[in-house]
Amino acid sequence: MKQTFFAGLIAAALAVPAMAEDYTIIAPAAPGGGWDQTARTMQEALQAEGISESVQVQNVPGAGGTVGLAQFAANAQGQPDQLIVGGYVMVGAILTNKSPVSLADVTPIARLTGEYEAIVVPVASEIQDIGQLVEMLKADPGAVSWAGGSAGGADHIAVGLIAKAAGVDPTKINYIAFSGGGEALAAILGSQVTAGISSLGEFKAQADAGTLRILAVSSGERIEGVDAPTLKEAGLDVEMQNWRMVAAAPGITDDQKAAITADIERMVQSPTWQDALAARGWADTYLSGADFQTQLDQDIAATQAVLQDIGLVE
């Protein structure tokens, strides 16, 4: 009797047309990092807005996201309820790790958020503006040590782009990689290095407290509340953001892709998502469809070129 009851219950559950997918989001990083936070914020927003009944987040850490990406491309084939979070760092990691799986093996849906890079020096430094730093770089590239996040990541790429724009040989830059913005920050505050580069968010509190001086930011326009010029204003043709995106499984149909894109768009416009972005200080840089694909292709090409220039990729 009991069994019949449960069988009926299961049959009923299966028969109910799903109002939306019960998504599983892969965060290809350890808990706590940017991708994990993005995935968990998505989980919260998708559920709170009733876009999806139940969303699971699964962490598959490793190698700049390429372990998670490879697992996703292999296991999620054709499944419209599987999503993966990724970002600009993954573009570099795919190249430096010679990953057999690339973003071409998944279905990119949309860019969600972005953070701009900031170039800073400690307040006690004799360097007052970005022009002065560029002059030093031109005079002797090795004498300018830059502290930032992991080798081949967004911070490292930004330094390469700056050197290139300043007409300095990018292989000569003296980039000191730290395991993250935090450890780099300690080296910058302790005046162990000439300058520091990382996401603006890593430095904002220190700059507000008057311990760091922001020399420039990597955005297209000046950023509100930040007293620093853009790199472009300083005559360096560099504009970049460390973006995060969401992608779907390979081999899904166009209809399925459209449905996922619609769900993500609803999420991005929801107050829950917007509030979460504001609380975390993330910029809403939502971009989807063909525009996103074009931007992605450009970023991949530019990243490949600069990584080759720095000498990290052959």
């Binding site: 190698a63 700049g64 430096t96 790790n97 010679k98 992991s150 080798a151 081949g152 490292h156 000191i176 990689a177 395991s179 990290l312």
Partner: peptide, 9 residues
């Protein structure tokens, strides 16, 4: 593993 300072495996 990946060498942290050069990004090479």
């Amino acid at each position: 593993g990946i060498d942290q300072l050069t990004g090479q495996a």
